[in-house]
């Protein structure tokens, strides 16, 4: 009864109300920001007195914002590459291996995902100060790789567990070398896992704030660091414009992910 939508009676309306209100609560700030980024008021008056594109103009003509965005993009791409590569190789070992302590290793690989990121940030900051990686692209990449790798391993071990190894064995018996069988048969079969690993890794790095704050230097900062630094001074609508662009990137990636998922099902 309680799990049949139409036999809930009055409860149905109570539940629907809560759900609609919650959905509105979740959606409102996002729409609000998008609206404000086109509003003319410096003081973020809502509804805006008139509409304008000047904040986008300010954003896109400021080389510091553009450079931060480029830095973010570059770092996220490198992180994605290594996260998927290392994660893929490790997932094969984790799923197929028969050695002791496999589940312990899995748990260890997941820890960066569950540990408070501020602890990792402070620890890496100390370490990088000592070995001179602070404020370098390498430092950024390593820091983000640590938090992206769990997502990658999670997606890829999941995909590999769902993949019937007999298919790869069949390719090997057909005469393909183990490597060739993996590249030509297994990888296409787990492509959905590869896509999720890539998208999650990219978004993890692209959106990451806390590690980036500690890794950044005045000459090298990512978009989130730039927003963070600006935000601590004032709430300028330029941030609304930057945020809206970030949201668009997210929505695009989500749509791609959904399309890939759908395409694989069809």
């Amino acid at each position: 009864m309680l799990l049949n939508f139409n036999s809930l009676g009055i409860w149905k309306w109570a539940l629907l109300t809560i759900t609609v209100l919650t959905a509105a609560f979740l959606l409102m700030p996002i729409l609000f920001i998008a609206a404000l980024s086109f509003g003319s008021s410096q003081w973020l008056i809502f509804p805006p007195p008139s509409w304008t594109l000047k904040w986008y103009g300010a954003l896109l003509s400021d080389p510091r914002w553009l450079e931060a965005a480029w830095t973010s993009f570059r770092i996220a791409l490198i992180v994605t590459f290594f996260s998927v590569l290392i994660g893929l190789v490790a997932s094969f070992g984790l799923v197929r291996g028969r050695f002791m302590g496999r589940s312990t290793l899995r748990a260890l690989f997941m820890t960066p995902m569950i540990l408070p990121v501020v602890v990792l940030a402070v620890a890496l900051y100390a370490f990088f100060l000592r070995i001179g990686l602070n404020g370098t692209t390498t430092g950024f990449v390593i820091a983000h790789l640590i938090v992206a790798l769990p997502f990658s391993i999670l997606a890829l071990t999941g995909a590999l567990e769902g993949f019937d190894k007999s298919i790869e064995d069949a390719a090997v018996l057909c005469g393909a070398s183990p490597l060739r069988a993996k590249l030509q048969i297994t990888l296409p079969c787990i492509s959905h896992g590869l896509f999720s690993a890539a998208i999650f890794s990219f978004l993890t790095s692209w959106d990451e704030v806390v590690l980036a704050i500690f890794m950044a230097s005045p000459t090298l900062q990512t978009l989130p660091v730039k927003i963070w630094a600006t935000l601590r001074q004032d709430l300028t609508p330029v941030i609304a414009a930057a945020s809206t662009l970030l949201i668009i990137v997210t929505v695009l990636l989500m749509l791609i992910a959904a399309a890939v998922k759908k395409g694989l099902k069809a």
């Binding site: 979740l26 996002i30 704030v209 927003i227 935000l231 970030l246 997210t250 929505v251 990636l253």
Partner: peptide
């Protein structure tokens, strides 16, 4: 969408 929107945004 809300979960994946940038935290700072």
């Amino acid at each position: 969408l809300s979960m994946w929107t940038n935290l700072l945004a």
